[in-house]
C-alpha cells in the first residue's frame, strides 16, 4: 500500500508539472486527467475508497470532459501552441518558481517534523454520507445554492435567440 501511495503521488506531481508546461491545451488537460486519477489512487491508499471513486467519476470523468469540450469547440490550432510556448520563457516563470520553491521547502520541513498519518481506518460511503448530512450540512446546502445560481445564469445566457428584438 505504501509503494502504491508513493508511486501514484509521484505520478500526480509529474503529471501536474506537465499540465503547466504543455503547450497544447488538450495535452495539458489530458495530463490533468492523469493527475486527478493519480490523486484518486492516493485517496484509495489512504483509506478513502468512496472519495477515490467520486474523484475519478466526477472530476476525471465529467468536469474534465467539459473542459475538453470547450477547448475542442474553440479548436485552437498551431498559432495558439506557438504563443503558449513563447509565454513559457524563463523570464516569465523564474520569479514565481523561486517563491514557490521557498514555500515547498517550508512544507517539506513541516512534513518532516509531522508524526504519522492524521487518520487511520477506512471511511466508507455510509460514513461520508453521514458527515455530509450531519456536521457539514450547511456547506452542502451552500454549495447547492451556488449551483442553482450557476444554473439560472446559464439559462439566462442560453435563452432562445428568437425572443430577442431584431438587430
Amino acid at each position: 500500500m505504501a509503494a502504491a501511495f508513493i508511486i501514484s503521488a509521484i505520478v500526480a506531481a509529474l503529471a501536474t508539472l506537465r499540465v503547466i508546461t504543455a503547450s497544447r491545451a488538450v495535452h495539458a488537460l489530458l495530463y490533468l486527467v492523469v493527475s486527478l486519477l493519480a490523486v484518486a489512487v492516493v485517496f484509495y491508499t489512504l483509506g478513502a475508497p468512496f472519495a477515490a471513486a467520486l474523484e475519478a467519476l466526477v472530476y476525471a470523468g465529467a468536469i474534465m470532459v467539459l473542459f475538453i469540450f470547450v477547448v475542442m469547440m474553440m479548436n485552437l490550432g498551431e498559432p495558439a501552441a506557438r504563443r503558449e510556448r513563447q509565454w513559457m520563457a524563463p523570464r516569465t516563470w523564474a520569479g514565481p518558481a523561486v517563491l514557490a520553491l521557498a514555500l515547498l521547502a517550508e512544507l517539506l520541513a513541516l512534513l518532516w517534523r509531522a508524526t504519522g498519518p492524521a487518520s487511520g481506518g477506512e471511511v466508507g460511503p455510509g460514513a461520508v454520507g453521514a458527515l455530509l448530512f450531519g456536521p457539514y450540512l450547511l456547506a452542502v446546502e451552500l454549495a447547492s445554492l451556488l449551483l442553482l445560481a450557476a444554473l439560472v445564469t446559464a439559462h439566462h445566457l442560453g435563452r432562445s435567440a428568437g425572443k430577442e428584438p431584431d438587430r
Partner: peptide, 17 residues
Amino acid sequence: DGIGLPFALAMIALSVY
C-alpha cells in the same frame, strides 16, 4: 472495498475520452 458500482460508473465515464 465495496465501491464496485461507483468504480464501474467512473470507468464508463472515462471511456468517453
